[in-house]
């Protein structure tokens, strides 16, 4: 079964790297969707069916679509091709490599992380549901509140200011898709 693991790993990491380095923004968003799909496959391999499907539903069905919409709405008048990376890119890359190195070092030197055999854990829908309604009912309500707040907030932020001079066409498109994402999580 290691083969499956490595295939998914290559898919996910390649998608992530492409999403971070391609020139065209829409390509980045599509590669991001591939990376999200790979993560969902990881969750399925780890016996977390519900989370895997929720990942596809939320990230590919909503977040990726939202990003694509944002990219199209902010295209417009880009000036001549600019450098892709900011001027301080060596520092950023160095920090990222440092973080990766230290994380791998910590994982390799830990005794907990070397576990081979896993107990056959299963998160059935029934367990998740009853846990959501008993132990985790407060976080659930908070999430509902947060999503409602985010929904209203996103609409207000993206709503056209009365005196703003951007074209009405764009705003019509902006106000339609943005509220939909938090709504879907209910």
């Amino acid at each position: 079964m290691e083969v499956v693991f490595f295939i998914i790993t290559v898919l996910t990491l390649a998608g992530a790297i492409a999403a971070m380095s391609l020139r065209h923004l829409v390509h980045c968003a599509l590669c991001l969707a591939v990376a999200f799909g790979g993560l969902a496959a990881f969750y399925l391999q780890l016996n977390a069916q519900f989370i895997g499907f929720a990942q596809i539903l939320v990230y590919i069905g909503a977040v990726a679509v939202l990003i694509v919409f944002a990219i199209l709405l902010t295209r417009g008048i880009e000036s001549a091709p600019q450098p892709l990376f900011s001027s301080a890119w060596p520092v950023g890359l160095g920090v990222a490599l440092l973080v990766f190195g230290s994380l791998v070092f910590a994982i390799q030197s830990s005794s907990v992380a070397q576990q081979q055999a896993a107990p056959s854990a299963q998160a059935t829908i029934r367990t998740i549901g009853s846990q959501l309604m008993t132990n985790f009912v407060l976080p659930l309500e908070l999430i509902a509140l947060l999503l409602t707040a985010a929904l209203i907030g996103a609409v207000i932020i993206a709503m056209q200011e009365p005196s703003a001079k951007s074209t009405p066409m764009k705003d019509h498109a902006a106000s339609a898709p943005i509220p939909s994402v938090p709504e879907e999580q209910r």
């Binding site: 599509l30 969707a33 069916q49 519900f50 499907f53 929720a54 596809i56 539903l57 590919i60 069905g61 909503a62 990726a64 679509v65 694509v68 059935t124 829908i125």
Partner: peptide
């Protein structure tokens, strides 16, 4: 599938992209 209905809606969301 244990979460068959969720699976249906999840893959259905893929068509948007």
């Amino acid at each position: 599938l244990d979460a068959g209905l969720l699976f249906f809606f999840a893959v259905g969301a893929g068509t948007e992209l």
